[in-house]
Each structure stands twice: as C-alpha cells, then as structure tokens.
C-alpha cells in the first residue's frame, strides 16, 4: 500500500536549512505502514532535500561550501527574461545548488518507524527563499 502526505513550509531566508525529521517520522506513524520505505521528495527546483547531522555548525559549513561552489554573481545563462513566467530568471544559484543537493531521500520503515542512523536528520534546504515550499512524504509497504 502507499500513503502520501504533503507538507507545506514557509521558508524565511534566501538560504535556509529546515529540519523536517520529525514531520517525516510523524507521517510514517500516521500511515499505518509497518514495513517498507519512505520517500521524501521536494516539489521544486531551487531547493533540495538532504540528510546530514543536525548541527548548526554542519549547516554552516554546508552553506559555505555551496556558496563557494555556486557564487551569487557569475555569468549564468539563466539570467534573462522568461516568457513563460513573465519574469526574469535570476535564481540560477538556487537551481544549481538544488541540482547538487538532490530533490529527495529514502529511508527504510521497520515496525512502523523510520530507521535512521544516529546522526541522520532530514533537511529541506532553501536556496531561493523566502517561499512557500511543498514536500511530499510517500510511505510504501505493508501494514
């Protein structure tokens, strides 16, 4: 069976790490599924989902790394007017950081609980905020 929940987060900064581990745990508990897999998938292209140790210093180092890899100012091809939006695309930095981060993560579900390593937390990472973001949590398995 499959159970899908959709979460909405209003990010508050241009770049932001939002820990969503407990929301995923709760969604799995509500699903009634005892054995299977949980997928956490973000519905956007300028933010990402990542797994790492839930420490501010780790967040800071990750943010600094991504800023070095993808600086705000560069000769981005995406910085032009986009007819489909009626707006200028000025979020290349967000797109590229998102691509490097990935849009999802997966965890096993055993005995109705998410099985994570002791240091593993799940983050929604904003790279073009503030915006309201949608995250899908899909639980697949058996009751």
């Amino acid at each position: 069976m499959m159970k899908l929940e959709t979460f909405s987060y209003l990010t508050k900064k241009v770049n932001e790490y939002i820990m969503i581990t407990s929301d995923v745990d709760d969604a799995v508990a509500r699903s009634g599924i005892k054995k299977g897999l949980v997928a956490v998938i973000v519905a956007h292209t300028t933010c990402g989902i990542t797994v790492n140790e839930g420490l501010p210093c780790v967040e800071k180092d990750l943010a600094a790394l991504f800023e070095r890899l993808v600086p705000l100012e560069d000769d981005y091809a995406h910085a032009h007017f986009l007819p489909s939006y009626g707006a200028t695309g000025n979020n290349s930095q967000g797109h590229l950081k998102s691509a490097l981060t990935g849009n999802h993560c997966l965890f096993p579900v055993v005995d109705g609980k998410v099985v994570r390593g002791g240091a593993q937390d799940i983050y929604l990472v904003e790279y073009d905020g503030p915006q309201r973001r949608k995250v899908f949590v899909e639980v697949l398995g058996d009751e």
């Binding site: 209003l10 990010t11 508050k12 489909s84 939006y85 009626g86 707006a87 503030p130 915006q131 309201r132």
Partner: peptide, 16 residues
C-alpha cells in the same frame, strides 16, 4: 497581465 507558473501568496509569505 502576462505571467505564469506562479501561485497565490498569503500575507505570511508576502511579509516574510
């Protein structure tokens, strides 16, 4: 008005 791929924003999002 000529825009697309945008959705309605509530006051929380606007003020943020």
């Amino acid at each position: 008005f000529g825009f697309g791929l945008m959705g309605p924003q509530d006051y929380d999002e606007i003020f943020t």
